[in-house]
């Protein structure tokens, strides 16, 4: 049995629906990981000791255990305590929190690297420490951290394939379903890989545009 790529158009609607889910989940989880990353960074750096220390432990656990396990825990585990999330929601939360922890690490480093004269200048104008962080320090830290966060977001896109195991019909699971019907794994896995790559290129393009827009303000 040779390769036959002409079979692809017949199942393209299923695959494209998978693409839509992959993009939807990736973008939602990326936003969650971005906002969560800022929040976690502020907690890790500035919350009182009693909150900060346990929080850092939780962060360590998130970074040190498999994302797949975390997804299982959120989707299957939380049901036992009465939290029954739809699979795609569980997937977004799992991916979002996992990458929020990685983003938080980057943002913490960037906050500490902002020139301390910036905080001083803001404080001499009469801003409180939290106002100075919000208006002056954090925006600069985020600006500096856009390129590495972009890399995390590309990792997030690739890891979004993991949510297929909790039954979200994103690109990987869609390809598997089509393969189940057609017994053509090579053609459809290649197709899925190509589509991931194209989404990836799209994300890189967006990242470059953001970087260009902020380049003047440094």
């Amino acid at each position: 049995m040779g390769l036959d790529f002409t079979i692809i158009p017949k199942y393209m609607d299923i695959i494209l629906l998978g693409v839509a889910w992959t993009i939807g989940i990736t973008v939602s989880a990326a936003l969650l990981s971005f906002i969560g990353g800022i929040l976690f960074a502020v907690i890790a750096l500035y919350a009182p000791w009693i909150i900060r220390q346990p929080f850092r432990l939780v962060e360590g656990v998130f970074m040190g255990t498999p994302l797949l396990l975390q997804l299982f825990l959120i989707y299957f585990g939380l049901v036992q305590i009465g939290i029954d999330l739809p699979a795609f929601v569980a997937g977004i939360i799992g991916l979002g929190l996992h990458f929020a922890v990685y983003n938080s690490e980057l943002i913490q480093t960037a906050i500490l690297a902002v020139d301390k004269g910036q905080m001083e200048a803001a404080r001499t104008l009469g801003l409180s420490r939290s106002q100075a962080l919000r208006k002056v320090v954090i925006p600069q830290a985020i600006r500096d951290v856009i390129p590495p966060i972009g890399n995390n977001m590309i990792a997030l896109l690739k890891d979004s394939a993991l949510v297929s195991v909790i039954g979200v019909s994103e690109l990987t699971l869609s390809a598997q379903r089509v393969i189940g019907k057609t017994y053509r794994p090579f053609e459809f896995y290649i197709l899925a890989a190509a589509l991931y790559y194209i989404i990836n290129l799209g994300m890189e393009w967006v990242q470059r545009r953001i970087e260009r827009r902020i380049s003047v303000s440094r």
Binding site: D115, G117, Q118, A121, T124, L125, Q140
Partner: peptide
């Protein structure tokens, strides 16, 4: 501090 303006050697303008 709102009543006291300060100017620094390295300006410390907000670059963003």
């Amino acid at each position: 501090r709102q009543q006291v303006g300060m100017v620094f050697q390295h300006f410390n303008l907000f670059p963003h």
